[in-house]
Design a protein around this nucleic acid. Structure first.
Length: 476
DNA sequence: CGGCATGATTGCGA
DNA sequence: TCGCAATCATGCCG
């Protein structure tokens, strides 16, 4: 819209404003504009009761001023400066500017008005929320602790992730500091720029019509522009936090070996369920709880264990023996306790109410393990008879065709078990506690390299189940 | 530092 | 969806 049309679009307000300045006009041109209005680029006919010739004169006068303004750019600099000064000092100027400002308001606001009260950007809100949740934004103290705790919890580690924890927090603090520094910089720049623009506009308002509202609007525009820059900052901060989190949460990157105790628990279960080492969902949950790991970690562990055991049974024999013996000892002790219990309470039902937790009997001493192991292989004690072990050791071929040595070792283990039984029988008067103990018996492993009933999960949770209870192996 | 151990991931099939 | 097999990536130890 051209300036001339703007001016020509003077409404009644123009006339009303001009009315106040009528006397000034009179002093300038000797005529008054009072009661006149100009619309649509064409002067309206004067209202009834007004002098037409007077109106023409006023129009001419204001037209001259406007003409001077319009043509100021066509003139030389000096000339324009002189004319500008003249216009600035013109007594009509305040009135004219006030009218022009009003016109600008009316034409400009209708266009920009819609943008004035735009709702908060949902993306910005998301970013803000995220930064708040991650502890980057918001209060300084304790910031990020929730996120760090979440990261620690998700990393799956139990106790030894304090290093990562502090590392994570340190990195988060770094991000936070950079974010705040940058934010401060932006705010400072925004304020500086706003002040600068405001000063400029105020300065310019002396030479061109700029209303305070317009300045306000300009400030709004500047703030919006800067907030979009701020959004970029927030976005990149979010990205940085995401990368940081993914680094710390990516368990593959930060693999931690399970604790010795956890591995022992898992191994105990594995070797005591060797014929069907597929823990049920409940068993997995139980194991996960005992080992302070997740169920999927238990699944991973069993998956890896099955495959690695199957690939190289020979390598795992020693381990198998160890855990088999351990299970036997556990079972023996449990049985002894059960017998004592049954003798005391219910002699007719020896296995009723039999319960024992793994933690109650742990063969933790390396010495005792070694002794046990050496005894096993020297065969120094007991007979090789295998009583009550109908499903004991099947001769079989391993995957790579090597003959499977489990039977002999198993026999040795069994001899050890017999020794234990003797000891127990002497001390607790127990004679057949180990009947039905499966020990190291990979009979479930078929010739195809897979476990029989591989997809039938065992429902037995504890490897130290009572010897009298029906083992899931036998039910398969 | 190299090699082995081990937890996790991926792709595939049932 | 689960398990298997292969593979990756990291931890650990000599």
């Amino acid at each position: 819209m051209s300036f001339s049309i703007c001016v020509a679009q003077c409404t009644d307000s123009l006339a009303a404003t001009m009315d106040d300045q009528a006397r000034i006009m009179q002093s300038i041109g000797g005529v008054s504009l009072a009661g006149h209005s100009v619309q649509g680029g064409m002067p309206l006919p004067p209202p009834h009761g007004h002098d037409g010739t007077d109106g023409d004169g006023r129009k001419q006068d204001i037209g001259d001023i406007l003409h001077q303004i319009m043509t100021i750019t066509d003139q030389s600099l000096d000339e324009a400066q002189a004319k500008k000064h003249g216009l600035n000092c013109h007594r009509m100027k305040p009135a004219l500017f006030s009218v022009l400002c009003e016109i600008k308001e009316k034409t400009g606001l209708s266009i920009r008005g819609a943008q004035e009260e735009d709702p908060p950007d949902p993306q910005l809100m998301r970013l803000d929320n995220m930064l708040l949740a991650e502890g980057v934004a918001g209060p300084e103290k304790g910031g990020g602790s929730a996120a760090a705790a979440a990261a620690a919890a998700a990393s799956g580690g139990a106790a030894d992730n304090s290093i990562e924890h502090s590392d994570y927090r340190a990195k988060l603090t770094q991000i936070r500091q950079i974010y705040h520094t940058e934010l401060e910089k932006y705010e400072q720049a925004c304020n500086e720029f706003t002040t600068h623009v405001m000063n400029l506009l105020r300065e310019q308002s002396r030479t061109r019509p700029i209303s305070p509202k317009e300045i306000e609007r300009m400030v709004g525009i500047i703030h919006r522009k800067f907030s979009s820059i701020q959004m970029q900052l927030k976005q990149s901060t979010c990205e940085a936090v995401m990368i940081l989190r993914s680094r710390f949460l990516d368990a593959r990157r930060k693999r931690r070996n399970f604790s010795k105790q956890a591995t022992e628990i898992l191994n105990e279960y594995f070797y005591s369920h060797l014929s069907n080492p597929y823990p049920s969902e409940e068993a997995k949950e139980e194991l996960a709880k005992k080992c302070s790991i997740t169920v999927s970690q238990v699944s991973n562990w069993f998956g890896n264990k099955r495959i690695r055991y199957k690939k190289n049974i020979g390598k795992f024999q020693e381990e198998a023996n160890l855990y088999a013996a351990k299970t036997a000892v556990n079972a023996a002790h449990a049985a002894a306790a059960a017998v004592q219990n049954s003798q005391a309470n219910s002699p007719t039902t020896p296995n009723s109410g039999f319960q024992m937790k793994d933690e109650e009997f742990q063969l933790d001493s390396a010495e005792s393990k070694n002794t046990l192991l050496s005894n096993m292989f020297t065969g120094s004690s007991g007979s090789f008879s295998l009583p009550n072990t109908g499903d004991m050791f099947l001769s079989m071929q391993s995957l790579n065709g090597d003959s499977y040595q489990g039977a002999q070792v198993g026999a040795n283990v069994q001899s050890q078990v017999d020794t234990l039984r003797h000891v127990i029988s002497q001390t607790a008067g127990y004679n057949d506690a180990l009947a039905g103990n499966t020990m190291f018996s990979p009979h479930g492993l078929n010739a195809n390299g897979g476990w029989q009933d591989a997809r039938t999960p065992s429902s037995v949770i504890s490897p130290t189940e009572g010897p009298g209870s029906v083992h899931s192996d036998t039910s398969n």
